[in-house]
Design a protein around this nucleic acid. Sequence first.
DNA 1: CAAAGTTCCTGCGAGC
DNA 2: TGCTCGCAGGAACTTT
Length: 295
Amino acid sequence: MPELPEVETVRRGLEPAMQGARFIKVEVNRGDLRWPLPRDFAKRLEGRTVTGLGRRAKYLLADLSSGDVLIMHLGMSGSFRVVQENGRSRRTPGQYYHERSPDVAHDHVVFHMSSGAAVTFNDPRRFGSMKIIARKKLDEEPLLKSLGPEPLGNAFDAAMLARACKGRNTSLKAALLDQTIVAGLGNIYVCEALHRARLSPRRRAGTIASRSGAPNQRAQRLIEAIKAVLNEAIVAGGSSLRDHKCTDGELGAFQHHFRVYDREGEKCPTPGCAGIVARIAQNGRSTFYCPTCQK
DNA sequence: CAAAGTTCCTGCGAGC
DNA sequence: TGCTCGCAGGAACTTT
């Protein structure tokens, strides 16, 4: 599920179940995820309390009372499900009670929390994974070290984006997918942001900066488009395609707001534009855009 | 067939 | 010419 808005939606969904709660029991059904879970994975969690649940780009970060940090990534198809498993539910019945997992076979990890919630990580493709590191080593963590700025942070502005793109011969599409330039965008939101900014995904990345690296109007439009689409998607609970669901099992709704993604052949939604949404391949992945209004 | 992600490998061109 | 170095593009991982 994976882009920033979906991960943020998951983070918010996990908070009531995990924030301030202790790991009572951790079950590992399959440890061979994208990288293998260590043998002592459960031991390093059990008995610890989650003192904070954060997010960096597409990574979830749970601070533990032991001084460790649990890093979680959803990969392409990962999801979390929260189920209240004892009789002490403080929540509306039904909100957390579900028939069964729709796909128990891929329930790889289960956290039984002192909040009474069972938090289940399900990931058919197993591109997601988890890792536990000491908090004091967070700054040197390879998974996080080379990440660029958070797209919704104040530091991410036209000047910074232009500087990062200056001199780059690659496409704007590829540049925005590059997590070292900006961390958290994926295929969907890059397509959507470029359409809102009326910039072609094929345009050379370097053309949003002047020769000196100063941002031009395109860089400014792009920044505004990125922030707008991410904020709107978070409000909508992310996008639900094949696998993304909120932790309570409800669907995100932002897929209904897609302007170009997965809309090949449809009329361009830009007012006054008569274009038709096209689909091309860039770096082996689908790009959706309007060749008429995105220049 | 194509899929929301990340990492690793190869090949190319620039520059010394 | 030959050697790096950085960048860009593609394959691989896996299941539905």
